[in-house]
Each structure stands twice: as structure tokens, then as C-alpha cells.
């Protein structure tokens, strides 16, 4: 049953088989996507017609490869930009929230903490429509009252950033809080007794201690933003993010170029995961 207990080989083998099947189930769609990105075919299907890089580089009547498809490249660029700003804002506010909830005491702390966790239990679609409704309302109100058109209150790049930030900050807060719980408070007290102000203590002692968690949280927030669809779809303006662009292509005009983009994402994620694993592995030894 567990490492130290003996059990029948039938049990052992069928358990092992289940685990293998599980991993096959896990990896199957990813492998399929990647393989078909290199198929010399106009359709996203077998049979295998031979190896081709057309869906990356071709530019002719039949095939428009990823690196020649300016719309697709633009949506990748928009997603990268969105991800960067979402990660930046989420990291700043999420870290501040972690410091606030871990280190300060105040009235209504429980209620505020509950609100900060709320994005975990609000469906992404609901978050999207709520922000769309209230920002549109605020935008119309400002336009009617002051005659000013506030662009970021209409579906647009910045509204997407705002929408994704609203839950990104929660994830950063949780990641940073987890690290802050392991922090030795006496270091802060020592700093304070040496006459550092509260702000200096945070800047010189707490933040450096939190740095690995903050960097990790930045990456997590970026990835959450990069792959988000459910909230983004309601807030997106004329410039779609990559998931929104992929979605409309899947629904209306799918060509193997979708596989080419997906291949890049799969390759990038897998490679980064392997690198971070190797680095951690070496650190441990």
C-alpha cells in the first residue's frame, strides 16, 4: 500500500498501469497539437503527409504561417503586454495586501480579507461582466457629466488589464503571504529598535526576505493573465489577446497555424519548467 508495506504484484502492477494511463491522458492532447503543427497538410487532421514548416513560415494563397500572420503576431504581442502590466500591478498590490493582512491589525480585517479572497470563488465570467457593467456605467456617467471620454472604461486594452488584475492580485497575495508566514518577526523588531521607521523596515528587511516569493508571484500572475479567457472576453476591445484570437479562429477559421502557435506555447512552458526544475535540482545537491 505504501512504500514500507509489501503488497501483491497484481495490485502493484495495476496501480502502476493506472498511473501510466493517467499520464498518457495528460500528455496526449499536447503531443497531438505539437505533431500536427509540422504536418504538411491544409487540415488539422491525420493522415501524416510529411514534415513541413509551412505553418510557421509560409506566405502564399493557401497557407499563412505563424511568423507571417501579422494579426496573430499582434495578438501575441498584446498578450505579452497585458501579461506584463497585470503581473506588475498584481505583484505590487498583492504584496502590499499580504503585508497588510499578515502584519497589521485593524477593524473589519476579517471582512476585507474575505473580499480579497473572493475572486477565488467568483466565476471568471461573473467577474468579467461585473467589471464591464460598472466601468461602462462610470464611463457613460463621466461622459454625460463632464463631456470627457475615458478610454480605459470602455472595452479596451487597459480594461482587460484592470479586469485581470482584480483576481491576479489575490493569487500574488496568497503566494507572498505563504512566505511571510515563515518570516522571523524578531528581525523586524530588531530593525525597529535600531530606530528604522516602519517603511524602512519593510523596504530593507521584509521585502528582501520576500524577494523569491515576489518574483515567483510575478511569473504566476503573468501566466494567469496570458492564458485567461473567461474574464477577458467581456472586456476586450478592438485588439484581441492571444486566447481571444485563438478562440475565434477555433470557432470560425481553423488552420494548422493554430497548432503552430500552440506548439510555441507548449514548447516554451515545458522548457521553462524543465529549466526551473534543473536549477532547483542543482541547488538541492
Amino acid at each position: 500500500m505504501i512504500r514500507s508495506l509489501p503488497c501483491s504484484s497484481l495490485y502493484k502492477n495495476s496501480y502502476r498501469l493506472y498511473i501510466i494511463l493517467f499520464y498518457v491522458f495528460l500528455i496526449m492532447p499536447l503531443v497531438t497539437i505539437c505533431v500536427l503543427a509540422f504536418n504538411d497538410s491544409d487540415f488539422i487532421a491525420l493522415p501524416w503527409n510529411g514534415f513541413s514548416l509551412d505553418w510557421f513560415f509560409a506566405n502564399n494563397n493557401d497557407r499563412l504561417g505563424l511568423f507571417k500572420d501579422t494579426d496573430l503576431l499582434l495578438s501575441i504581442w498584446i498578450s505579452l503586454k497585458t501579461g506584463f502590466f497585470v503581473a506588475l500591478f498584481s505583484t505590487v498590490i498583492g504584496t502590499i495586501a499580504a503585508l497588510l493582512f499578515e502584519e497589521e491589525d485593524f477593524k473589519l480585517k476579517g471582512l476585507l480579507y474575505f473580499l480579497a479572497l473572493a475572486p477565488l470563488v467568483i466565476p471568471g465570467v461573473v467577474l468579467g461582466i461585473s467589471i464591464l457593467l460598472s466601468s461602462t456605467f462610470a464611463g457613460t456617467y463621466i461622459e454625460n457629466t463632464f463631456g470627457v471620454d475615458v478610454e480605459f472604461l470602455r472595452p479596451s486594452f487597459w480594461l482587460v488589464v484592470i479586469g485581470q488584475f482584480s483576481f491576479g492580485a489575490t493569487y500574488v497575495m496568497l503566494l507572498v503571504s505563504a512566505r511571510l508566514k515563515k518570516f522571523d518577526r524578531s528581525l523586524e523588531e530588531a530593525g525597529q529598535s535600531l530606530r528604522a521607521t516602519r517603511l524602512e523596515v519593510i523596504r530593507l528587511i521584509t521585502i528582501p526576505f520576500l524577494r523569491p516569493a515576489i518574483i515567483g508571484a510575478f511569473v504566476v500572475a503573468f501566466l494567469i493573465s496570458f492564458s485567461n479567457f473567461n474574464t477577458t472576453i467581456f472586456l476586450v476591445g478592438s485588439d484581441p489577446t492571444l486566447p481571444v484570437d485563438l478562440y475565434s479562429r477555433i470557432k470560425f477559421s481553423s488552420t494548422p497555424v493554430l497548432n503552430a502557435v500552440s506548439f510555441l506555447i507548449v514548447a516554451f512552458i515545458s522548457l521553462s519548467a524543465m529549466i526551473s526544475f534543473a536549477v532547483n535540482f542543482r541547488k538541492k545537491q
Partner: peptide, 22 residues
Amino acid sequence: VLLLLIPIWIGELVTIYGWMIL
């Protein structure tokens, strides 16, 4: 465990698209 995390980070849209092809 690392292998388990990869599909999460790749994102839903890509993996769902993979299932559509399958």
C-alpha cells in the same frame, strides 16, 4: 509533479483545442 503542472500553465484554450483535434 512537474509534469502535472505543465498543462496548467499552458492554459485552457490550447489544451481544449488539443482535445478537439483528438
